[in-house]
Design a protein around this nucleic acid. Structure first.
Lengths: 207, 207, 207, 207
DNA sequence: AAATAAGCGAGACGGTACGTCCTGTCTTAGC
DNA sequence: GCTAAGACAGGACGTACCGTCTCGCTTATTT
């Protein structure tokens, strides 16, 4: 149930109202921001958006799917990165961007928390979350790391997937469990513990 | 809503049935193992345990609280460690134990997933989960690290909290998001990326 | 789904609220009086009675069943008759009573119309209507006729069932189709066309 | 909403498809035969007829109106009678024809039952049913009775409307309430109880 | 041949009702 | 005083039909 940008081939029949779609996504994100998952139901979204419940069921299968769509709509561009930066700076920028998103953009943080929670009992939603949120972001990070390996900035023997988990999972973990504050200093704290970047000296010998 | 071990002051009236408590916790864990959060409700637990719904409300405030109680009952002993081991071995053992718990003990994995999900919209449950599950385990890890610092095995400039997140969050993240398999090899993959252990010999010999 | 007068054996559990039952039956009859079948739904009855829809489903299976119950509650006594009257007078009284019920008691007329209409597509309701409304009334009429036969007032060769249809069906037909006014004069008009009563002369020869 | 036989003034624009009308009426009657009123909806008729719902709304206002149209289309000719027969035979023939229609022609019986039921909450449909089904049939019966009065076969003091109800209402009543079988023997049973025919010989000889 | 107009299918949409399930509370009886 | 049984209001679920509203295509008549 990802966000579709194609406006459909335009056959017969009344065309889908774009105002409706927008209102629904906004209502879902607003509700989840204010009251979390508990405030989220097909009924409450429909009421808030001024829309019929049937219209919701027509296009989405669950409240979680709507929130995920709203989430993807509002933050799809955050995964870009500067190709000229060093691997370390690029990874740090990604981590920083994620933390900023979670701390400065309340709706996004609430939406991620809610969708992750709902995914526990909704396999389709779990799949969509993985495919449309985590996978693109992990691929960007993986690209950065692989480019760093090729350029000698990153040690070639690292496990890329484990590295991404090592650096990014703590951010999600703090967002979900809230056992410690989530702030910008976390980036440096984590990177200081990571030994995947090659030291200046050995870098000359590689390549 | 943590597990109470004190048998209550024993006033007048019919004493609380321990058989009932056991049956309720077992029913909750069974249900969550079979069907996740979706299968879990006060009604379904009461039906499975052969108990009145009112009894549940008398002692717990939500299905999540019951599952958490069941979870704590069945795995409270898993956080012990051998004081004679090296810091690295002790940390690795903790990580390994957690992974084993999640991969070999279906009920525990299901319960953690469910309680974490429910905690998104239940502040009290979130607090109990942090206090009774995460905090004791983090304290054990913190002890190991601090002892390592004192003995010179662990670099003293590390941030202990960030270190615990770095090493354990990936395990929870894989359990929840399921983007990559959760297996015993993850321990070595993660530790290989961690530079917090002071190494007598030059790192170049590792590989 | 007939009206139960037995107050149930009184076991454990909260006893059924009699106020609720009364309010539901009244609401159903009121609604059908004001707007006919179209105004009648489980939802509208529940709203009018200030009661949860679930409570309705607990005790009745359809709006029609509720109206029938209300109907039986309000007019169960109308089928009595004076055993000392002549057969002709007793039958006339029954016919008159039915017409009066339909013309003077709007709710009853509306309820009978609605239940008969709904019975077209609800076999259980049709059965209940036959058993609890029509059958008792037909039995009273049959008793009168059979007593008349024994006393010589009624010709013995008549078909009792056909006679009851002949005399009473026109009343229901006018109520339902409304092709001609339903008034007290109909009783004499119909009886004037009926030849089932024995003439005064032959009466002496019988017995 | 009666059947129009005039092919319309033929203005500009695409003419109405007669195939469509036929398919719709057939679909409505089929549905009502199979499942009664409950199976009848604008949606189900449209689906069965392979037609758009909008087309239905263009020409009819309700499912009941469609069924009535279908009913009138299929049985308009059944009210003719032989002018040379006696009044008694002619009335008996009308009664017999109605019973035969209801017992041998399932679709017609189902349609009458459904339309009568729906008419309870649809004043326009009730009017159309009276005007286009009952009134023509009652007029034929009234003609027979009035001709009988003129010829001396029928007693002049009878109330014609009441007589028609007396003889025909039982047939509709049995069709709707189904409290007793509807069969050809009913005609003689009813006529034997009717004293409206002037009899030359003394009634005692009948038996 | 083009313009005009109605018939008609496809599809979106708000609204209402359906019957079911779970929640949290309350009321009774029994242990 | 713990517990089971049960009644109840409230609210969400997912589905069905309602009636209305665009659309775009088709089929005819009129200019």
């Amino acid at each position: 149930m990802p966000a579709e940008s194609v406006p459909a081939a335009r056959g017969p029949g009344r065309p889908r109202s774009s105002r409706t779609r927008t209102a629904i996504l906004a209502a879902a994100v607003d509700l989840v921001t204010e009251g979390g998952l508990a405030a989220l139901s097909m009924s409450s979204i429909a009421a808030r958006a001024g829309v019929s419940r049937v219209t919701l069921y027509k296009w989405w299968s669950s409240p979680g799917a709507i929130v995920l769509d709203g989430l993807l709509d509002r933050s799809h561009s955050s995964i870009e990165h500067d190709p000229s930066a060093s691997a370390r700076d690029a990874i740090a920028a990604q981590m920083q961007a994620l933390i900023t998103l979670f701390t400065d953009d309340g709706p996004t943080a609430a939406a991620i928390r809610a969708v992750t929670a709902r995914a526990e009992s909704d396999a389709q939603l779990a799949r969509d979350l993985r495919e449309h949120w985590h996978r693109p972001r992990r691929e960007v990070a993986a690209d950065i790391l692989r480019r760093g390996i090729r350029s000698g900035e990153v040690r070639p023997e690292i496990d890329v997937e484990a590295t991404i988990d090592l650096l990014f999972a703590p951010i999600y973990h703090r967002l979900l469990v809230d056992h410690a504050p989530l702030g910008p200093e976390l980036v440096d704290q984590l990177l200081a513990l990571f030994n995947g970047f090659a030291e200046p000296a050995p870098r000359l010998t590689s390549t």
